[in-house]
């Protein structure tokens, strides 16, 4: 489904991703962990198409298409979804209106007729229930004045509405209380299917208790320096990153 080959990217002349390789198959969940500043959000942003990053090498193939050739909106329409680590506040645009535009733009891309107001509302209500998203938030300006947890929940809600093939969750667990964490994780799990895949960026095992990964990768200084089964996350939780850093330095 997604194949990342020796991907390199830089910003303002500084190389952040230094050759990433990752293979994601339908139905899989991959967790990406790693110390602060190692490049996890950068990887997520490059996959979503943020234009500030310059791709300096490698390639990314998504469902047979050269992903890096596509505009961010085309990637979304092809089925990529990024839950932002820091969701953006957009005054004056309501969450509901924003989502309606998004849904219908994607339908247009696929050559489908737009949903009418009733169909859209019915669908949105179901999805809102799925992640216990409060109705009043839908009518407010997108993320404006939302609490940290409400913003994260809104990301998962949007994901539920857009039903992406590949969801990338960038620290969606941070800022969530225990109950919210469970609800959000359940939302993610409900969407899991043999056709869909998820990349979960997180610092904590507790999310992975709910969303159990097939693989865990450690990103350090712009490279994936270690990959393993779900137990690797437990080991990291226990021992921290020093031993991995030491391994990397030893190899040089």
């Amino acid at each position: 489904m997604l194949s990342i080959n020796d991907l390199r990217a830089s910003i303002e002349g500084k190389e952040i991703l230094k050759g990433i390789n990752l293979e994601v198959k339908p139905g899989e969940v991959h967790a990406i962990m790693g110390p602060n500043g190692s490049g996890k959000s950068t990887l997520a942003s490059v996959l979503a198409g943020r234009e500030e990053y310059e791709v300096t090498g490698g390639n990314v193939v998504f469902e047979g298409k050269d992903l890096l050739e596509l505009a961010p909106e085309e990637r979304a329409a092809e089925g990529i979804f990024l839950a932002f680590q820091y969701p953006v506040e957009i005054p004056g645009v309501t969450t509901i209106n924003f989502l309606k535009t998004a849904v219908n733009e994607i339908r247009k891309y696929k050559g489908e007729a737009p949903l009418d107001a009733a169909q859209f509302l019915k669908m949105v209500r179901e999805k809102a229930k799925l992640v216990s998203m409060n109705d009043s938030l839908l009518k407010r300006a997108l993320n404006e004045g939302f609490s940290g947890g409400e913003k994260k929940r809104n990301e998962v809600f949007q994901m539920a509405v857009l039903e992406p093939r590949l969801a990338i969750l960038d620290e969606t667990d941070s800022g969530l209380d225990i109950d919210a964490l469970r609800i959000v994780a359940e939302g993610v799990n409900t969407l899991r299917s043999p056709e869909r895949a998820t990349i979960v960026v997180t610092h904590y095992q507790r999310l992975l208790d709910y969303i159990v990964p097939d693989y865990v990768h450690v990103l350090y200084k712009g490279r994936i320096v270690k990959s393993g089964p779900k137990e690797l996350a437990l080991e990291l939780e226990e021992k921290g990153y020093d031993w991995i850093k030491a391994e990397v330095e030893a190899v040089g």
Binding site: F81, V88, T101, E105, I106, L162
Partner: peptide, 28 residues
């Protein structure tokens, strides 16, 4: 606001559509 524009595009909203939504919101 480029951040806002990227956020909207990452949800499938084309650049021109996102621009007009943002500008309309600016006037609202």
């Amino acid at each position: 606001d480029e951040e806002a524009l990227f956020y909207m595009r990452s949800r499938g909203i084309s650049r021109p559509e996102a621009m007009s939504l943002l500008m309309f919101a600016f006037c609202a």
